[in-house]
Design a protein around this nucleic acid. Structure first.
Lengths: 229, 229
DNA sequence: AAGAATGCGTGATTAATATCACAAATTACG
DNA sequence: CGTAATTTGTGATATTAATCACGCATTCTT
């Protein structure tokens, strides 16, 4: 999925940034909380933001992470009065924030730009619906496989012996995406390593048998084009 | 969640319908299949459409159902080249379909209308993300509870002794939303009946202890405003 | 470079769900 | 209406996954 800002013409890009306020956040800082009133939409100039929900003490569910040239806050700005996720900076980030009213005015005056926003949100919706399918329908092995496939679609580089994921992945991260215990994820991943389905240099994984994953998740029947986290 | 067409001014409403083609479909008919090329966006004048995915032989996952004055096809029109769900008419329905190109032109020329589309999609996205939370984080009892809460938000009428759901619900339908076996859903629902948490006159359910559900799903901490199926 | 903090692996045990196999209940329809 | 088709309930059993309890490995910090 293409980051929002990369979809825009220079003119639209500048229009948005000119009407926003620069804002620096440090690693670990919270930009907004679940239940907060919606004031702003955020563009990410540099950095990485994690959107998640708390589902219990010490239990979180990752909704998505967004990076450079992307944006967040659409679940909120466009869908109600309160944010329904928590937004935390994973690394030091430089954001531009735009007031809700301002964004609405800009989009009302500029249908072409608005259409890009709609597409961007609709692609997230497609990905979200496909995640439900994967996480729910094929047991925990399927859920973990789904996360790997999605990582590979986002950060994968095809090499002679498989697809290499260029971002580090922690077992815990995976479990926060799919709501499965860390231990179970660990066991599944290690079983795959033994069987030569994946390989890893510490946190960097290589998927050696994509077919195994695709069969597990019945991918041939699936028409999803935005298969990302 | 308000149906798309009810959000529009008369002018916009007419603009859309004037540029669409009327189309009747019978109960059980398929409007499009997963993997089909995207040609049209559909408005529902009357009827009810179910969007779903096949996840195996005799195994389906319901994505959502949409009814009168609503629309479908946004996952497709706005998100790629192919539909990634199957659309079936649950009852005889009268639709209006609009070519992809036409819709894009209308939205480009009419930012205010486009903003309504973005909101409509973003609300679905919020609901979808919240579903993942509910279905994944609180076991199968939580998943079933989530479906009941969502039904009650869509079709619930508050009565002195609880919330009455005005649409018939089959155990099987529930299991197709959450990917849990029919038998398990049946056992959970019957346990609740014994304990007086819900009551049913056949397929018509009354939720007598909403608090039980809300506690199960940690609803107080949840800022979701579009908690629907 | 040492100690603290965080993340991971793994066995044993318990708990939750799926599956299978029917019987009973309900609904559809000719 | 009465029969067929669909939907549901339920016990028994098999699987799957969570939990608990640690020790080991890795990474941060100073």
């Amino acid at each position: 999925m293409e980051p929002l800002l990369q979809r825009l013409t220079d003119k639209d890009y500048n229009l948005l940034l000119m009407n926003s306020r620069k804002m620096d956040v440090n690693k670990g800082e919270t930009i907004y909380n679940e239940g907060d009133m919606v004031d702003y939409f955020y563009f990410i100039h540099t950095g990485e933001i994690r959107l998640f929900k708390r589902t219990g003490p010490n239990k979180e569910l990752t909704i998505f992470t967004r990076g450079e040239d992307d944006a967040f806050g659409e679940i909120g700005i466009f869908s109600g009065l309160k944010y329904s996720n928590i937004a935390d900076a994973i690394i030091d980030s430089e954001l531009y924030c735009m007031e809700k009213r301002t964004l609405e005015n800009i989009l009302t005056d500029n249908g072409g730009l608005g259409l890009q926003f709609t597409r961007w949100v609709a692609e997230s919706l497609e990905a979200s619906k496909a995640k439900i399918r994967d996480y729910i329908s094929f047991g925990s092995e399927g859920a973990v496989a789904s996360v790997f496939i999605r990582y590979s679609n986002m950060y994968g580089v095809v090499k002679p012996d498989g697809v290499c994921i260029t971002e580090p992945i922690m077992i815990q991260d995976i479990s926060k995406h799919i709501g499965i215990s860390r231990e179970t994820v660990s066991r599944i991943v290690n079983k795959w390593k033994e069987r030569g389905i994946i390989d890893s240099d510490n946190k960097y994984y290589m998927l050696k048998k994509m077919d195994y994953f695709k069969q597990l998740l019945v991918c041939e029947q699936c028409g999803v084009e935005n298969c990302v986290l």
